[in-house]
């Protein structure tokens, strides 16, 4: 009798073991979906709807493998630069041509004639409006990574993330001076650029602005390198620049207002010419999580053109 009880006990336990195994193996229950260590950004990504003053009017895909730079030219044509070429679109998104080259267009700008100045990672190449290579400027440094380029009537300004410097060239590619390096006498704090987003632009055709992302500030320089003014505040809140280093890109409306884009909390916003927060163009919910490199351009009608490298789209926002 005792023996029987022992056998039955042993067998029952063995059967329990087997049942546990089989049930666990073939159960269709999902893995635990709770992350006790979740990083919660969603609260910060919430935006007040009434602050959003723009609507997405149009979006279209580009054909380039990787896209990195956008610019807007005569007739509000849109130019997209990226790996191995530049694509051209009409203002309504219809393809209007393209041209190719070896290499990777990390930045892009046009002069009045329509010639392209293209930052090819470590040097600048100049192309005719038809896409013919006109001139190849000297390489700057093997560490260089040209993240932004702007053309005024007489000068070409280039932002180099790798060397953390801004260069002023003439249209022929002769270096005139370097701007923005740390200089206590001129009260220049120096650029802090932790990640490869370093933008510059020209306002009213003479004011050079550079995004000093690590300091979360927009800085205005004279052509000789004196810093005239700066504004900007580090904050996750909607009126500041979030994360380690923002804004990643910016552009100007015709009244001199700043259009800025950020990574981390993906958002496009407008600041007044003096740097006061005005409104939201596109809230974080408009972008795929993790999108970075939202290059910006503005056309003659103040439409805001956003390059979305994650969705490989050009997205155009207009005022409500």
């Amino acid at each position: 009798m005792k023996q029987k009880i022992f056998i039955i006990a042993g067998l029952v336990l063995l059967v329990i073991v087997i049942v546990i195994m089989v049930r666990d193996l073939f159960s269709s229950k999902k893995e635990d979906q709770k992350n006790p260590y979740d990083y919660k950004l969603n609260e910060l990504k919430k935006t007040a709807g009434k602050q959003i003053a723009y609507n997405e009017a149009l979006s279209f895909r580009t054909g380039l493998e990787e896209i990195h730079a956008i610019a807007c030219g005569a007739g509000d044509r849109i130019f997209v630069g990226g790996s191995k070429g530049v694509e051209i679109f009409e203002k309504d998104g219809k393809p209007a041509g393209k041209f190719g080259f070896e290499g990777f267009a990390s930045s892009l700008a046009m002069d009045k004639k329509g010639d392209f100045f293209i930052g090819m990672q470590d040097h600048v190449e100049v192309y005719s409006p038809e896409g013919k290579l006109l001139k190849k400027w000297n390489g700057i440094s093997p560490e260089s990574f040209l993240t932004s380029i702007a053309v005024s009537d007489s000068f070409v300004f280039v932002a180099d993330y790798g060397k953390r410097a801004v260069y002023r060239y003439d249209h022929e590619g002769r270096l005139i001076n370097r701007i923005g390096e740390k200089d206590p006498e001129k009260k220049v704090p120096g650029f802090i650029v932790p990640s490869p987003y370093f933008d510059l632009a020209i306002r009213y055709n003479h004011e050079l602005w550079v995004a000093n992302t690590g300091r979360h500030s927009m800085e205005q320089f004279s052509y000789d390198g004196t810093m005239n003014s700066a504004w900007g505040e580090a904050s996750m809140a909607i009126d500041g620049f979030c994360g380690c280093c923002n804004p990643s890109h910016f552009a100007f409306l015709h009244d001199g207002s700043f259009v800025t884009s950020e990574k981390g909390i993906e958002r496009v916003k407008i600041y007044s010419p003096k740097g006061e927060f005005k409104c939201i163009v596109a809230p974080p919910s408009a972008f795929t999580e993790g999108t970075r490199g939202l290059d910006l351009a503005v056309d003659s009608r103040d439409r805001i053109i956003v390059l979305d490298p994650e969705r490989k789209q050009v997205r155009i926002f207009v005022k409500k």
Binding site: Y39, E43, L44, I192, P194, G214, H216, A234, M236, C244
Partner: peptide, 15 residues
């Protein structure tokens, strides 16, 4: 790869 940022997204709680 580190940017040695003051406002480090990995160190500080958001906000």
């Amino acid at each position: 790869m580190c940017g040695y940022c003051d406002l480090c997204g990995g160190y500080f709680k958001p906000g």
